[in-house]
Amino acid sequence: MAASDRPGGLTALSVLNGFFALTVGGTTIQRFMTSYDLMEVVEGEFQGRRRYRGYLQSLLDEGVTPWDMQILALIGLVATLLLSVSIWGLLKRSNLVGRWLGTLGGIALAAFYLLSINWLPDTILRGSGLSIARQLFYPFFLIFMLHVIFRRDFLFHPGRSG
């Protein structure tokens, strides 16, 4: 027998999930670090470079709090984990792990970018706006694919789990 009857589109989606998990994972680490640095600046304990300190101060001046950064980082972490786990689910065509965790991952990813646009000042977002639009396209595309195009593959796959 041939190895798998998984549609190529699902394999491609799992690769894209991996790509976006890495991207949002990287940004998440950055947000966590920024949040701790912001806390140190607020408490007057920051020891870093002067230029970076100036940048952090400008964020605080624009009304960004360490909590905002932490919430964003937390959402990013959730998105990273869900997208990563869903890779396995997509490959196995698991309704729970692939379709539903993938959907939640997509929602978390969209929330991460939308909240970033909403909360972060122009100084951070300037020049990267369209790349955020690019990133925003993916979660909607993912959810559409999982619930319209591949719905039956998850529901009726003979070897499905969950």
């Binding site: 190895a3 009857d5 549609p7």
Partner: peptide, 12 residues
């Protein structure tokens, strides 16, 4: 009948 919802790639 058991293969209805599978892809043709798995068929022998």
């Amino acid at each position: 009948e058991t293969e209805l919802y599978r892809g043709a790639a798995v068929l022998s």
